[in-house]
Amino acid sequence: MFPTPIEKSTPGVQIAYKAMLPVALLVWLAPLLAVALFSIKPDADFTTGNYWGWPTSFEGFANYGLVFGSDMPRYMLNSLLITIPTVIGCIILSSMTGFALGIYKFKANIWVFFMFVAGNFVPFQILMVPVRDLTLDMGLYNTIPGLVLFHIAFQTGFCTLFMRNFIRALPFELVEAARVEGISEFRIFWFVIMPLMKPALAAMAVLIFTFIWNDYFWAVVLTQGVESQPVTAGITSFNAQFRAAYHLMSAGSIVAALPPVAMFFLMQKHFIAGLTLGAVK
């Protein structure tokens, strides 16, 4: 299949291929389509056993209205208040660490780099008890800043790996030329490297946004109330409240999943560039 471009095969194969694509996509996304269908159904459909049939009435507005009338908007706001500062913090920290590790040659370079990479790979659970303890001691348990600080710190590992590899691939002559001109290192960072980093930073921002928005583990470990929990944790209490109300749980899930999806479609190019940076040299 792969090495042969489809244009070179017989018309029959080409038609079969084009017909197969939408079918495969439908099967692949069936679970999501089911949720979308559920979310516009009336409550009565579930009690009468009409799970998969056509909705007897369109209740999309009513269902989503109920979702927005619950605590969900608050959870969404919390998620934004957690995600956006984390993204900004990560960009600041990792553009600096990435610059330091990508441009300078010094003995400890590779070891500092490996520290970030190794830390990025550890299972969260090894950090759970100490980080929870630390957050409690700082008086930040069940607050948004408590969660943000941890996320920034942890994601710095991944972001450093990302930025450093990107900066390594830039032409080093630029820095050399700037040094010959007598430009200070800080100005090289700000005026030479920073402008070149922009696409990588955009890609990284999309990635981090998705990672943090979808985080559930730390949300459960470091927060517990509606005043600070993000939507991933909020959706579980929402679901507990509406247990077996499939139409509302579906609508809630869709609302909770929407921001990263929107982000993904708006910034598609960056996102994919971000995921594959480093995979291909």
């Binding site: 610059f99 330091a100 520290m115 100490p130 980080v131 710190a153 942890f154 710095t156 590992g157």
Partner: peptide
């Protein structure tokens, strides 16, 4: 350039 990043990472991950 490394100090802020290392500091954060030390406090929340390595230690």
């Amino acid at each position: 350039f490394l100090i802020p990043g290392i500091l954060f990472f030390m406090v929340y991950v390595i230690i």
